[in-house]
Design a protein around this nucleic acid. Structure first.
Lengths: 347, 347
DNA sequence: TTGAAAGCGTTACCAC
DNA sequence: GTGGTAACGCTTTCAA
């Protein structure tokens, strides 16, 4: 049985192709009887409207691009993807994924060489900076660009961002309020392209500087090389400090969780010996009872997608740029700290 | 600047649309000089070949469907997706994702109602059984179906499956060889649709039965309700047994990891007090030093995608059905067990 | 309520 | 090496 096209269905149902088309796209314009007949025939012939033809005719592609740094397999990227998908799929759009757009070269390649221009209805950019000139290329051909956790940057039609800087400042403030004074911030070295996550470092620094007017804070930023071993690198860096800190601020849970688990093997037990807070509230954070800053990339993906849909539809946005805040989730790895009373020899 | 189509480019470059088309699809047929001219104009006009038109003309859709049970956010599904993507994206295909195809209803909806028939070039089915009749619907219109970790079932053009049953039997055998005799298998209740993962239970049972001829094995299957709380349910079930087991076999790492972490809080320390093995080698398994069975869904996705590409291309497969085996990864949570010597009062 | 026909932007065959 | 032209399968005005 060869594939049936709209003509075959029309013929078999004794109607014109116009009627077949309407039966699927605007059924209310077709009489109930005709509609039933057409549907019955279509079902029998395994017929369905061709999306390619519809797309060509309509000028839309029913496809959006999602650009991300690194792999989709990271927690943040997966959640973001799933959030976008949850809105775009029901709306009839597929997501064309472009991973590892994390160097100026790959990014440039995307914006110029790849057959994207005119071939997606919108572009999502997750977690990295974009060049205003590149944004302009898309705008010239009326392709909306929406950013998710993008650094402040020109040329995006809409953005949904978490306030990384403020979030990390909150986490740091929390540790200071608990009485911690010797605090280390562990993080991966900053990415080449201004990933939004690097703003967290500044949040930590700000909070420490602010507190210095009131307390004697001993703080330190401990960057380690990016890569699969970053948690072990941080572990090593911590264990080779002159003095082990009484609190650790982690750039992300994926750093904090291994640290909690492995520091225990070296005799550093949280919250008994030190406090630690993460950032993300990603898988297993609750299992190990990690105090952390929660963000919800799934929801950010949803919001971004809703904006994209409006933009595709030509509607204006009431709030093109949204900022959401990370929430402190107090759990068991951060506890009040009794400041050591320096030993005073008998007077 | 209005969107330029192929005619605009042809005109501006002083050539015919045929030449413009060839410049992009078969550049070797166009003289270097003409080609350069066309490309220059195309770039200036932001022109690119329309995928929709190409798709319509070619009869292909450059789109494949991926059906999965549950959410893409699970480790297995994300890895599978990423593996398929790593092959299909460079080949010019987008993935249209259908999640939660895990009840007969949603599955039926997919195969009949949704505008899929004739709108994808191939279908991937991950981790659940499919009805031969439904498979036949696709085959009738020449859409290849490729299964990943699908239970043995008719009608799939190709499959890449892990041997779940054998894998879990291996894990169980390992525990028995270590000297464990009181073994519990923790798992989620079987899915309605015959998820491939349920075969693992049988592997456990087989290994125990086999060993009974040689040893006095006290084994038990402990199913708990599916859902987000399944790990805690398993924990509760374990803690309320008459006697705590000396070994635990887990259906998956996502069950094993919380168990290792939380059982410790109740005084059951591995490997001191009991052994435990997981299945998957998913994130943090290495961090907590979990002995587990490794599978590689990313690679299975890749293999499945390679097969799909061949099938789309009309080529026959040398090995349509592949089975891979899970590898035992011995780490720190399973250790030799000294069988308790029953206490004998002084004679 | 239905049908006829134009056209969406390509590709590929056939001339030249 | 290049150009003209007929499809590909649909949507949508316009008429009936």
């Amino acid at each position: 049985m060869a594939k049936a096209d709209i003509h075959a269905v029309a013929k078999a149902a004794g109607v014109s192709i116009s009627t077949v088309s309407r039966t699927f796209t605007r059924p209310e314009l077709v009489s109930a009887k005709t509609r039933a007949k057409v549907l019955e025939v279509a079902d029998r012939l395994d017929f369905n409207i061709s999306r390619s033809a519809t797309a060509l005719k309509s000028g839309q592609t029913y496809r959006v691009a999602l650009l991300m740094n690194e792999e989709i397999t990271s927690w943040f990227n997966t959640q973001t993807f799933a959030g976008i998908e949850s809105v775009m799929h029901p709306a009839g759009y597929d997501i064309s994924l472009f991973q590892h757009i994390d160097t100026p070269e790959t990014r440039h390649k995307f914006f110029t060489d790849l057959p994207i221009r005119r071939n997606v209805d919108a572009v999502f950019v997750a977690s990295f900076a974009i060049d205003p000139h590149e944004a302009e290329q898309l705008q010239r051909i009326h392709v909306p660009i929406v950013g998710i956790n993008t650094p402040p940057s020109d040329g995006l039609d809409a953005t949904v961002c978490i306030d990384d800087e403020k979030g990390m400042a909150t986490a740091t403030q929390y540790l200071i309020n608990l009485g911690h004074r010797r605090i280390v911030y562990t993080c991966s070295e900053a990415a080449a392209m201004g990933a939004s996550i690097d703003a967290r470092t500044q949040g930590f620094i700000n909070a420490c500087r602010d507190a210095e007017s009131k307390h004697d804070i001993d703080w330190k930023v401990l960057p380690v090389a990016r890569g699969p071993e970053f948690a072990d690198s941080a572990l090593a860096a911590l264990l080779t400090l002159d003095e082990f800190p009484d609190a650790i601020c982690c750039q992300m849970d994926m750093m904090a969780i291994p640290l909690v688990l492995k520091l225990g093997r070296y005799g550093h037990i949280t919250p008994r010996d030190y406090s630690i807070v993460g950032f993300d509230d990603s898988p297993y954070a609750d299992t190990i009872n990690l105090t952390t800053m929660r963000q919800n990339p799934y929801d950010m993906g949803r919001r971004a997608a809703l904006k994209a849909l409006k933009l595709i539809n030509g509607d204006a946005l009431d709030t093109p740029h949204e900022t959401v805040e990370a929430q402190l989730v107090p759990r068991g790895t951060a506890a009040p700290f009794d400041q050591e009373v320096p030993f005073t020899p008998a007077a």
